[in-house]
Design a protein around this nucleic acid. Sequence first.
DNA 1: TACATTTGTTTAAACGTTTAAGCAAATATA
DNA 2: TATATTTGCTTAAACGTTTAAACAAATGTA
Lengths: 343, 343
Amino acid sequence: MKKKKTTIKDIASVLNISAAAVSKALHNDSRISEKTKIAVRQVAENLQYQPNHLASALRSGKSHLVGVIVPRTNSNFFSSVIQNIEEVLNKKGYSIIITQSNESYQKECDSIDTLLYTQVDGIIASMANETVDLSAYEKIKSKGIPLILFDRGENDLNVDYIGIDDYNSSHLIVEHLVENGCKRIAHIGGYKRTRIFNNRIRGYIDALKKHHLPLDDELLTESGLTIEDGRGKMLELLSLDTQPDAVYVAGDYAALGALQVLKEKNIRIPEDIALVGFGNEPFTDMVTPRISSVHQHSAEIGKQAANTFLKYVGQDAIDQQLNKIILNAELIVRDSSNKKTSL
Amino acid sequence: MKKKKTTIKDIASVLNISAAAVSKALHNDSRISEKTKIAVRQVAENLQYQPNHLASALRSGKSHLVGVIVPRTNSNFFSSVIQNIEEVLNKKGYSIIITQSNESYQKECDSIDTLLYTQVDGIIASMANETVDLSAYEKIKSKGIPLILFDRGENDLNVDYIGIDDYNSSHLIVEHLVENGCKRIAHIGGYKRTRIFNNRIRGYIDALKKHHLPLDDELLTESGLTIEDGRGKMLELLSLDTQPDAVYVAGDYAALGALQVLKEKNIRIPEDIALVGFGNEPFTDMVTPRISSVHQHSAEIGKQAANTFLKYVGQDAIDQQLNKIILNAELIVRDSSNKKTSL
DNA sequence: TACATTTGTTTAAACGTTTAAGCAAATATA
DNA sequence: TATATTTGCTTAAACGTTTAAACAAATGTA
């Protein structure tokens, strides 16, 4: 009862030729006659032949599969990156296997094992927040397949990286807030151990200095940047003796939490406190007031990551270097921080 | 320079035993001595042995890969379903390959081909809006691997299906609106050719009848349910001679578009017009006013889909039937339709 | 006509596993 | 002691491709 799959041999026996000839015909080899090719294609069609990837990948040593590891897929940023990676790679005959780390180091290690086991030709990854031990990533490198990091990267791995200029983004934001008359700017940041959040924090500090603004420890906090974190940190900021007149949040979800608190406390936005998020998640444009945020060029990041992988395809020896592609982020100014239009 | 991967043979030659023995040792075969097993595991560790999935899958005929096809991953519903599918399947040693159809029939066909080519052991899918020709799905069935549909299904395929009770959800919504004093309820629906949207429309019509409300053609529209569609259809409804006092939108994104229009026109929600969405996307709880919506039990759907697949694993002959698992959806009442709390 | 090249195909090995079958040695059974 | 069973391994084939090497036939060249 089990359905027998048609193989190259079945086609061969129908036409009384060798399996090798069939294989070559299907690959349009120049040494196969046009007549045979047409016949092979015809029979393949009739028998509903489906090439077996496992066999060809095993034989050729190329699986034409690329692993993609992201913290989660349900943020607009990551799903947009993925979509663009897929688009570029599909055109070149590659499929992608997506795995989510859920920000867990353990899950990330498992994912890497699964991907290596599946014999992917390369891995494109954005690291989990938790990840500090790089051995799992070293393992990828040791297998001799290309590893491309994006957004959440790590210099020490010495591989290609695509991301935005986080340090400079903070400058843009602080500058914008200063222009809007803010003088006491707080930062609800991510964990410093994650490079991108560290860069945002450094940028924040340096930008304050540049504009001769007070650098107050109590205005700078670290968290996981969930909605709840945003609420909690905002409440803390409000309980200070001197409240900030602007809050720059390193993630949109946390910015949303902060926004909720401000609204509940009937604090006017942006008049009393201006708010800027990071990531330009679609909801920042949906809530009231709309939240200013930083657009991360997710589509571009995805495309560049895919192209970087393709650069290595066909190379015998993969010798990767720390090669950073840094895109300029764009600040999207909306109601939550724009005092000028609300005049 | 190319890095040589360690194989089972390398381990065998180190220990001076056969490759078969190594294979069995790694699979904990009872006919291999404990001593050998320990030695094998030790050497495997030392040589950084990574089993080759392609080879084992080819030989055993089981790839332990499951394909998942969704319209897109960036909705909360789909990413939650995926996450739960992955969770259940990972525990049983399966990995998933996710592909997005982007609501395109062509892309869906390509995805199916890629998945079959990759020799997945089964496919879990939610169909694209565009899809009417079922031949690509018939092809999956003809390969003798299980096909599980969720959310966007099709009876004619005679396979397992997991979804919510769309027809009844419409009843819940209409009932809720009637209880809130609404008498002229419009429906911004999806395309009737998609079964779930058809069911929502049928439910809407029948519920109106049940409550002896006018069934007015101009109150019932079809669209792709994007934000833009929601805006357009809402504007149409507002231009009617007698405006509705409630709008039931079959998708949250379109509901958001409708909400934007209502706010722009300074129409009070829910007093002048009550609004209900569908899908319980996180942003429905973020916007002002918060949008009432229907929770689709995405986690449960994912788990059930995965378990349904697992049911077929190990069966020689897959003989699928139209077997529907229908979950009860839950109406989450929020500000946009709740007149009682605003009294 | 003799030799070289091109064309179209076949043969056979290989990719890294798994697994049925076989077999010798060790152990148990009578 | 002779026979049966168990233990621990080996051998060899198979999974469905790809591909290097070989080769006969057809065609080109001198």
